[in-house]
């Protein structure tokens, strides 16, 4: 069972990102689970969501305390996200303007903010960074690009889906592993 935690700020679209990843697992022939932590929601407050993927039935219903992957939606959260828990060899995927490496952990970098802006993906809370992040995380998890794209088109048929595809595809093909 693969476990992943998303750490972000309220309004960044972490719930949708978790849902897309769980849906992509199903499209990819596996079981998927998205379990966002719902608190007393406030925009801008730290939020988190658990995602699990497994070839067999998922019995876990807790938050991911020691995930194999941590997705950090803002570079301001790197320290907090890693200290919240990750396996010793767990991978970190970071949205930041510049590449940042996390000590002792394989780290991937994507500038999701710039890619969302470039594609004109905005909501009331700002650029929809969750769309390029979805592409980037699929690449890191070795989910085929066509599965990633199908997941987006199933959720947003029509023009919105097409616009999302561009940003997610760019992130899929440019997310880079930082050499330690």
């Amino acid at each position: 069972m693969l476990e992943l935690r998303i750490n972000g700020f309220g309004g960044q679209g972490s719930v949708t990102l978790a849902h897309l990843l769980a849906q992509a697992a199903l499209e990819n022939g596996e079981q998927g689970q998205a379990l966002p932590f719902f608190g007393v929601e406030r925009r801008g407050a730290p939020v988190r969501a658990a995602v699990r993927m497994s070839p067999t039935t998922i019995h876990a219903h807790s938050q991911c305390e020691l995930p194999d992957y941590v997705v950090v939606m803002s570079e301001k959260l790197i320290g907090a996200a890693v200290s919240e828990g990750i396996t010793a060899i767990g991978t970190v995927i970071i949205n930041a303007p510049e590449a940042v490496a996390v000590d002792k952990h394989p780290t991937w970098h994507v500038d999701a903010d710039a890619m969302a802006r470039e594609a004109g993906l905005f909501s009331a809370d700002g650029p929809n960074i969750n769309i390029p992040l979805f592409g980037a995380v699929c690449r890191v998890l070795n989910i085929p690009q066509n599965i990633m794209e199908q997941t987006i088109l199933n959720k947003w048929p029509g023009n919105n889906g097409e616009r999302n595809l561009g940003a997610a595809g760019k992130a899929y093909n440019t997310v880079t592993q930082i050499s330690l």
């Binding site: 978790a18 849902h19 769980a22 849906q23 199903l26 079981q31 998927g32 689970q33 998205a34 379990l35 966002p36 932590f37 719902f38 998922i58 219903h61 807790s62």
Partner: peptide, 12 residues
């Protein structure tokens, strides 16, 4: 069934 852990958990 449990609030959030089941009610808001997305699964197949």
């Amino acid at each position: 069934f449990d609030g959030f852990a089941i009610s808001h958990c997305l699964m197949p």
